[in-house]
Design a protein around this nucleic acid. Sequence first.
DNA 1: TACGTCTGGTTGTCCGGACAATAACTCGGA
DNA 2: TCCGAGTTATTGTCCGGACAACCAGACGTA
Lengths: 261, 261
Amino acid sequence: MPPDARYSPQVANKDPLDLRLSVDRGSPVPLYFQLSQQLESAIERGLLVPGNLLGNEIELAGRLGLSRPTVRQAIQALVEKGLLVRRRGIGTQVVHSQVRRPLELSSLYDDLEAAGQQPATRVLRLETQEAGAEAAAALGLAEGARVRLLERLRLTHGEPVAFLRNYLPPDVLKPEVAELERTGLYRLLRGAGSTLHSARQSVGARSASAAEAELLDEQAGAPLLTMQRTTYDDTGRAVEYGTHLYRASRYAFNFQLLVRG
Amino acid sequence: MPPDARYSPQVANKDPLDLRLSVDRGSPVPLYFQLSQQLESAIERGLLVPGNLLGNEIELAGRLGLSRPTVRQAIQALVEKGLLVRRRGIGTQVVHSQVRRPLELSSLYDDLEAAGQQPATRVLRLETQEAGAEAAAALGLAEGARVRLLERLRLTHGEPVAFLRNYLPPDVLKPEVAELERTGLYRLLRGAGSTLHSARQSVGARSASAAEAELLDEQAGAPLLTMQRTTYDDTGRAVEYGTHLYRASRYAFNFQLLVRG
DNA sequence: TACGTCTGGTTGTCCGGACAATAACTCGGA
DNA sequence: TCCGAGTTATTGTCCGGACAACCAGACGTA
């Protein structure tokens, strides 16, 4: 194989008919979404190889009995996910990225669970307080407003991984200890009706104090990853502020960024 | 002001005529993009307050002499940036987020420059090598293929902040020391014709070895932030792999994540 | 008061068509 | 052989229209 054959645009194309694309007009699921999902699953399963894609939009529309705008909308969604690239005059290609898991606002609990790490949570504290300056500023509340304070220890295989301190506006979520030990905070927030939208994070590092080391089963002075995060729902309201500590020996953040604009 | 007045949808609206929205049909800039930028700048400058927005799409289209799809495309772009929220049956509102800088694939150089930190770079090493297993895997090359190795020290105000080691496929960029000391790697990559698309990052922490401490002007054992990153262009090709060390006492990662799908 | 119903307003989805911009390919001429 | 012009294919932008889905508030009824 020539050294850069994998970057050539002339990769042979599967016959699109093999993809079994079809839409169900009786379904309440939007047509563009049906198509978009079928294309995505075809890519995930390797039915569509990096290279030239389903010919052109117009023909694809014709074969599916859809209009071109609808097909474009389906393709556009995948372009924004980073699965496809459009090239004017050329066509639309599948991106040949090895790793194309798009990244989401990640939840430590879900991450650990997905990695088969059997996460567990110990709730250390759950109470309502008056907000200090830091939490109030992060949540956009007045200083002294009531906030729920939550402190948890996250473990895998019985060993501590992280110490999590969160502040919640009281009307957003009223968590119970049993729930918190069973699942992650993000899942609870979503379950309570918040549609999470974005988060601002700051990741740093520092040495563990004696108390922190004790809590996390490390030596004093051991390196810790620190993370502060404010999460916003789709109206821009802050629904959670957290300041967390991770054992650097047992955890690292993995994420994928997309370029915007 | 009642406690949650800022979340009420009934915020008085500026007269949209004050916004001086208009489009230039002679310009080569797409109409939807012109409108999108004008709306964005109106939001940035506070002319549009969180609350009810420019009435409805149809009326806005009529006033500007555009079609509704074009207006929708402009609004959609801002929704994806997290500046607006659409609510069926209600209208489109400006998100009331304090911080709404959308985030991009960040460049340390640009970040420091934007923060007024006067970044400087010292090139420690620049040579072509055979790729080791790690770099080859990250770049998707065969082990032993030629790669360019680049080691830099990044400083602000004369003090070291980070040690940067990068691997580049030789046909992507042929950087020169003078360029590297004048600007950041991302800017050079873009200048060389790569359109950067996404990056996978891993952020962790560890204690500085004696040699690392010496280089970064820290004490041995001091906490360091570590970052590995592979950057991909819009065809999914890896254009850069880097493994970096930051002084935790002087730097932290700040970024904003958007929820996907 | 409490609750279901109706109504108006707004975004969501979808269609069919038109022309512009861009890139690859073909082909003729030097 | 090399190079430039023309041709063709494909996505990019834009239009006008239609109906569906959904939400809030007003209204009527129990």
